[in-house]
Each structure stands twice: as C-alpha cells, then as structure tokens.
Amino acid sequence: MPEDRDDRSLLAITYASIEKLPDYPSIEQSTATLIEMLKDTVDLIAEFTAQGPAGIGRFDSLVLAALIRSQSTVVGFLAMIEQRNKLCAQSMIRFQLDSAMRLIGCLIAAEPEELIEHILNGGKPSKFKDLSGQPLNDFRLHTRLSSEYPEASRIYEQTSGYVHLSVRHIAGIWAAEASRPDRLVFTSPDALPHWDEIQIRATMVGFVWATSCLLDLAFKWQKGQQNASETEARPENT
C-alpha cells in the first residue's frame, strides 16, 4: 500500500478530516469519469426510447425516469464541485442512491406493477411489501441494495445528515482554523462552508460509486430485456 494511502473505508475518509491525501483520483480524473458516465446514460436513454412509447414497458418507464434524473443530477453535481458547494453536493449522492433503492425495490416487491405506478405518481415505496412480507421502507431498501453493492447502507446513513436538517449544516459557519476550544469564530456570512480538497475528492468518489450502482442496475435490466427479445424472436426447433 502506498505510504500516502489511507486504509480506512471510503466513508470514514469522506466525512472525517485527515492530514494526508489518500490515493484517490484527482478532481479532474473523477470529473472525466462522470462525463463518461453521462455519455453512458445518454446511450441508455436512447436505447430505452428507440422503439417509441409503445416499446416502453412499465418497469422500463421507471428505469428511464431514474436515468433522466441521474443525467440532471450528474450535471448539477459537477456544477456544485466547481462552485465548491459542499452541502448541495453531498446531498446529491443520496439522489442517486434513492433512485437505485427504488429500482431494486420494484424487483423484490410482492406487487411490482402497483408499486411502479405508485412511485411514478410520486408515492413512497413504504406502503408496499416485498415477497417476504417486509415493508419496503428505506431500511429494507438500502439493506437489500447493500447485498448487491456493499457500501449502500453506509453511504445512506452518512449522507442522511446532509439530506435532512442537521448539525452538519450549522457546522459550516465555524471557521475551523481560527476557532479554539474556548473561542468559536464564525466564517463570513456570505461565504459557503469551507471544503478541503480531501473531502472534495472523497465526495466525488462516493458520487461516482452511487452513480455506477444506478447505471449498473439500468444496464442489467436493458441487457435482460434484449436477451428476452432475442429468445422470443428465435424460431422453435421442429
């Protein structure tokens, strides 16, 4: 392991201050990765819509909605990185995770068709149950997602403090370098909270990871649909 690499988990590094930069991609490298993911997203959207509305099934519609949401989220995330807007950028990780959780929820739901329609109408999955009878609340969804993508639950928990109003937001007004145990100093009220490069780089890795989970689910669904179509089109042996 390189001397400058931190051996803690991704999330421990993302949400804790450390002195040395770990062996993470640079901001420029992660940006390039996300731009490639944007291209993959556009390609997937084109594939899902190639046959027109008649070729889009119910679950296809949900995947398509997730891809369109992801496309906008990636563009917005990159803008927040450029602006060094920590509080907005951190919460965007959950946007991607939220979409992935809903996709996998529909795959394990006892009533998938009804759940898909419910979600597309803006409803919450928690009103439905999975095949084992467990309610599809956020805990069930992110733990099930973790069985496919092991970091999901930890990222869900760590980003909750940015999605919901919490101490993470008020912490942004303290000037860390100027403050002392007996004297807290405020930052300028018109300045965004300070964001160290290590935190930016780690946040980008977390966002890339969450986006890759969503794209992986979409790719798998699209591949499954293609295989099903090829099977149906194949002539039976006589």
Rank of each mutant, 00 (worst) to 15 (best):
E3C: 02
S9L: 09
I13K: 12
A16E: 09
A16D: 08
K20S: 15
A32N: 05
A32D: 14
I35M: 09
E36G: 01
D40Y: 06
D43H: 13
D43F: 09
L44Y: 08
A46Y: 00
E47R: 14
T49M: 03
T49W: 05
Q51H: 11
G52Q: 10
G57D: 10
F59S: 13
V63R: 01
A65M: 14
L67E: 11
R69A: 11
S70L: 15
S70F: 02
S72N: 13
S72L: 11
G76D: 02
F77Y: 15
Q83I: 13
N85F: 14
L87F: 01
C88E: 10
S91N: 02
M92K: 12
R94W: 12
Q96E: 15
R102C: 11
I104D: 07
G105W: 08
G105F: 09
A109L: 01
E111I: 00
H118I: 01
I119G: 05
N121T: 08
K124S: 12
K124C: 04
K129I: 15
P135E: 13
D138A: 10
R140F: 02
R144F: 07
E148N: 04
S153D: 09
I155C: 05
V163M: 08
G172H: 04
G172C: 04
R180A: 12
R180D: 02
R183H: 14
L184T: 07
T187V: 13
S188D: 15
P189K: 11
D190L: 04
L192C: 03
P193M: 09
E197G: 06
I198G: 14
I200R: 11
I200A: 13
R201L: 07
A202Q: 12
T203E: 01
M204Y: 00
V205K: 07
T211R: 00
D216L: 05
K220W: 08
W221H: 15
G224Y: 04
A228F: 04
E230G: 00
